[in-house]
Write a protein that binds this DNA or RNA. Sequence first.
RNA 1: GCCCGGGUGGCGGAAUUGGUAGACGCGCUGGACUCAAAAUCCAGUGGUAGUAAUACCGUAUCGGUUCGAUUCCGAUCCCGGGCACCA
Length: 971
Amino acid sequence: MQIQNLTFFCGKDLGIGQVNYPPAFVDCIRADNDLGKLRIHQMEYNFREIEDRWQRRWKEERIYQVSNNSSKPKYYVLDMFPYPSGAGLHVGHPLGYIASDIYARFKRLQGFEVLHPMGFDAFGLPAEQYAIETGQHPALTTAKNIANFKRQLDRIGFCFDWSREVNTSDPQYYRWTQWIFLQLYDSWFNRSHQRAERIAGLIHIFETEGNLNQECPGDSSLHFSSGEWKTFGEKRRQGILMDYRLAYSGVGEVNWCEELGTVLANDEVINGVSERGGYPVVKKKLRQWYLRITEYAERLLSGLDTVNFSQSMKDMQTNWIGKSRGAEILFDLRVPGKEESKDIPELKVYTTRPDTIYGVDFMVLAPEHELVGQITAESKEKEVAAYLDYVNSRSERERLAEKAISGCDTGAVAINPFNSREIPVWISEYVLAGYGTGAIMGVPCGDERDHRFARHFHIPVTNILGDQYTGLEANPTKTAVLSNSDFLDGLVMTDAIETVIQRLELDGTGRRRVNYKMRDAAFSRQRYWGEPFPIVWEDGIAFPLKDGELPLELPHVEHYQPGPEGEGPLANISEWTDRNLETSTMPGYAGSSWYFLRYMDPHNEQAFCSREASDYWGQVDFYIGGTEHAVGHLLYSRMWTKALFDLGYIGHDEPYKRLVNQGMIQGSSRLVYRQKGTGLFVSAGKLASGAGPDLPYDTLHVEVSLVDGVSLDMEAFRHWKPDYQEARFITEDNGTYICGTESEKMSKSKYNTVSPDDIVDKYGADTFRMYEMFLGPVELSKPWDTKGIEGVYRFLKKFWRMFYSEDGKWLVTDAGAALEEWKILHRTIKKAAEDTERLSFNTAVSQFMICVNELTALNCHDKGILSPLLVTLAPYAPHISEELWRKMGHESTILDTPYPAYQESYLKEDQVNYPVAVNGRTRTEISFPAGTDHANMEQEILQNGIVRKWLAGKQPKKIIIVEGRMINVVV
RNA sequence: GCCCGGGUGGCGGAAUUGGUAGACGCGCUGGACUCAAAAUCCAGUGGUAGUAAUACCGUAUCGGUUCGAUUCCGAUCCCGGGCACCA
């Protein structure tokens, strides 16, 4: 028996009250009668010592380093890398990391070379906000936070290959973010080839044929011949090219957040306020950088068919892209008083329902529509101007909050190209400038909004739906038979759509058109803590820096205040402005759009990632992260991958083969109820029964660690905050104070965070890992509940007992195992392997528990059983497995062992118990030797007393025997 | 409003292809060990009736298909997530 003597600082007292030693650790400690001496029995399951030792050894032995030159098949397991916030990790964060870690270890045991890296998405707003408040440089706080994150992660025992760590704010990393940006800048999307190509090729096309075959994505009305191109000056040419580039600068309406002092991408704005901080967001016209992600809409959509994402994830992306099919229709315009004017252009509308063309009763333009000024009749000018003022006065938020019907007649009329009917043209804010053509045809009988609009302004409604239209509300059906529609009369609407489109194209009054909701992504931020753009402005022309000038390093600044006229802090620095460098920086998603590629070849100084490396590792086989990135990061990184693929830098055009979204672990908050304006706290039970005083109450969050279950430690509560020193309580009749509970997001301010550090301290990393998995399916969101962890902890202690006796003797023998034991082992291997493969980690943990319960009952200590069992457990509980594995005499890590194969022969039973049902209702059970002929079984079933009783003399119609499962006698 | 998920004991959840519903864990109850506590171990634990064997009911509700439905189909209710004037 090995005993370590330690001098313990708290003397005779075990110190449980004083230092609050975790119960699990106290288990391993027995007090000696000698003063101040404690004995630690190493043979108890001393997870602290085991975990510390192996974490150190693993690091020294570099067992997690993977090679790019392996002959093994590759497997790439990736976590969404974290933003290193100052708050550190709470128990919710590691959920996905544990799942991926188990899977990565499992794949390694199965013989794959597994890339499982980790890094940090280190640029972003919070670090900069913190810098503004405290003056601490973001680089400093970021480095500090990263160190803390790494420490926390390492304690959980992840198999990350830290030699491949990336940090998006490291110049050696963002040098390549800048480089990729320049590749996008130097590219355009060739629509006929459906892929990105170099700008040089586009210039060549312009020189030979103009842009007649290459519609300009930035300005569809732009047409020029090769001859015209040659006459254009440099500035004009660059302006045109800019309208084609995949990364481009342009003036546009952006989401401006005054509080944050920057623009935001559409997915960073939720209900008119910023995602981070919840500040109001307004539309503003600004010169910005954009990514022309809209050009990839079709490929982003079709690519979803080739990847394994959850249905909801695919739906979210599909909805965000928002593809719709319809037609563009041209209407001639007439403006009273401007009859003869020839410069009134046609009005172009987009509709998904060209079949309703005879039901058009009015047109509506977005207030921002470019034609509004030209077509407003003189008599209406005042009203239109007043309406535009009204629209401008309303913030985005107000518009979203109260969708009041408003609008103004412009006095102009549009001519229906099919029947020459004159239709009034209105403007209204319910029509969005940014979608379609910014103008719609109003069909009140078939569209709810159009109907409300027509009603509100007393526009007569034409019925083209026959009796399908009641006159009271619109009917958006697609299956009605058209009436009042001239040549379409009698056609079903769905068929009429095609008929109308063909007619429009024949007459030249319109064309088929596909539309997308998705807009180009705003790519610049007026902030400091991001990648600088490698762009120099000269005379309004953007010039990219050369490869040799990268990285363009972020300069050191003293202050983080915004620059003049909405520019970023970089505009305050003369060394920056003197060089005419772009003063905005890239958004948070820039660095995360390609980091999975950098992990493959992290130290390459010649390229962002060598082609050999990306060809070897290829797609991420298994990607895990939260749903919140559904339309941001995932779409952007898919686009970057496609562009890099098009340009020949990588060999695959979808980054992630399989995506799993882990659920959130919510905090379980505890609430106390204080009578308003007093120090009197009323217990939840008393409050609910109405026994408390009936003044209004404040509901306050209380630190969860002060509450055992729901009962509050009142003494600790008084000491918690000075405010509560004088707290008085109205308790339940048994003297306890019961708290209210609520499941909500873990956050410091709600005092409901639980740190993985505390759990690992108390129970160890292996228990923590298995418990998080045991809670339920990874995809599921669930509240954290520390109580249940005891069950998993008991399991590991029980497991330990199979190897060590209570007094520390090594129990493992070579004696050989009984058949029953082998059966248990092979069943466990099969189940654990299958469950792990299908990511059902919770049921795999259950299986281990069953196995250990059964083997313990059989008093099993055989090496032949325990060895393979350790290997199957290794992905879940790596420390204890490694410890016992090496104790068994193995020199190298358990991870280099092949995953055990199960033998089918052990899974077969000699006797099979069949439940016997009569008409589906289970009556009894009959046992047959495995493989009994069905005909023989039938005989025996009919002779069975209970079955005979149930048949009551009747002949069964048929007997259904489901092999190995059940027997049903149908009467 | 629209689009996805989902609804199973006191709780988290299991049931992989339509085949014994409630695995495993927590909690609870009783017991063993102990001067005592902790830890550990054993037994019980969906509901109703019964000493018991057992019987009946039971996977949100109603209906359908089937020898047999938590599983498939239809309707309704509720919960969660996403989108939301997208023409």
